[in-house]
């Protein structure tokens, strides 16, 4: 008996030792990927840092200029506006998809006929090629011939100027982004709903709780972590949104929809200010990391409370 026990613990210890030994050897599996990540992800990060402290000549020479690009950037009003615009766009393009996505997840969590088909149609916007759908939306936004203004007039509403006016262009682009990315929020929250325990609901039913009370006090707290994850992902994607804005407006009218990403693209590939673009990239990256950290910290606090 005792002997069998010693042998068993000895075997367990050997297995644990073997596992630790293998853990180191499993690194070999990641080596090719590590090489690729170094070449196409880490190298660009480091090179961008190097670039941002240089002035790049069209001929190919690089002139060291310290923090000159950053100082110039700090004084660039066009960049300051781009930051404000990006935050405005992101606020709209996060809030709307998160609220609608939670509602959609609750709806798709119920059983109803043709649910599979309805869900597939609902997720098509996020899988479709962004350039293609941006094109269709830009035709729908046409002030005279567009189908959207026709639908508004059919409802007795005045026509809107959509992407053709500086006042409405950002909310309009946020509308397209909402249309496109609400499904992702829905999928993440739906995953949360699928993992909910049944007991609290049975208890609530016995206590005679209404549908809203059940949602507010049971469902919402339980799926909150999923909503936060969806919110963080959505925020990061909204901050770096490019395709839809570039195809529909290219930052216009004027610079009314020029977000940081569009500004960066123009500096790098329209004006070839590569050093300056490097500095923009670094600031942009820090902004995205900072916003994500703030959101994740909020999530931690929510967890502790």
């Amino acid at each position: 008996m005792a002997e069998a026990l010693t042998r068993a613990t000895g075997a367990a210890r050997a297995a644990a030792g073997r596992r630790a030994h293998y853990r180191r050897r499993y690194w070999a599996f990641a080596l090719p990927a590590a090489a690729i990540v170094l070449a196409v992800i880490v190298f660009p990060w480091l090179f961008t840092l190097y670039m941002s402290v240089h002035e790049w000549e069209p001929s190919g020479g690089a002139l060291f200029m310290g923090l000159g690009n950053y100082l110039k950037l700090a004084a660039d009003a066009r960049f300051a506006w781009a930051i404000l615009r990006t935050l405005y766009f992101a606020a709209l393009a996060v809030a709307a998809p998160v609220i609608l996505g939670v509602a959609a997840a609750l709806a798709f969590n119920e059983r109803f006929p043709l649910r599979g088909l309805a869900r597939t149609v609902f997720i098509l916007p996020m899988m479709a090629t962004p350039v293609a759908i941006a094109l269709v939306w830009s035709m729908m936004f046409h002030p005279q011939l567009g189908v959207l203004n026709y639908l508004l007039s059919a409802l007795g509403l005045p026509p809107a100027s959509w992407t053709y006016s500086a006042d409405t262009v950002i909310p309009t682009l946020a509308l397209v982004e909402t249309w496109q990315w609400t499904p992702l929020v829905m999928l993440i929250v739906l995953g949360g709903l699928a993992s909910l325990p049944r007991d609290p609901y049975e208890a609530a039913l016995l206590d005679g709780a209404g549908a809203w009370q059940t949602f507010r006090h049971i469902t919402l707290p339980l799926i909150w972590p999923f909503i936060v994850v969806a919110g963080v992902i959505r925020t990061i994607d909204a901050l770096k949104s490019f395709d839809v804005i570039y195809v529909i407006t290219q930052g216009g009218p004027g610079t009314a929809s020029e977000t940081i990403n569009i500004f960066l693209y123009q500096q790098a590939f329209a004006y070839y200010h590569l050093g300056y673009a490097g500095a923009v990239t670094v600031v942009f990256f820090i902004l995205i990391i900072a916003v994500s950290l703030v959101l994740l910290a909020m999530r931690q606090r929510a967890k502790w409370q």
């Binding site: 660009p44 961008t48 670039m51 490019f242 790098a268 990239t281 995205i288 994500s292």
Partner: peptide, 12 residues
């Protein structure tokens, strides 16, 4: 890598 904007890889 998922967080970084695509443009920042592209210039280098």
């Amino acid at each position: 890598a998922r967080i970084t904007p695509g443009l920042s890889y592209l210039i280098p």
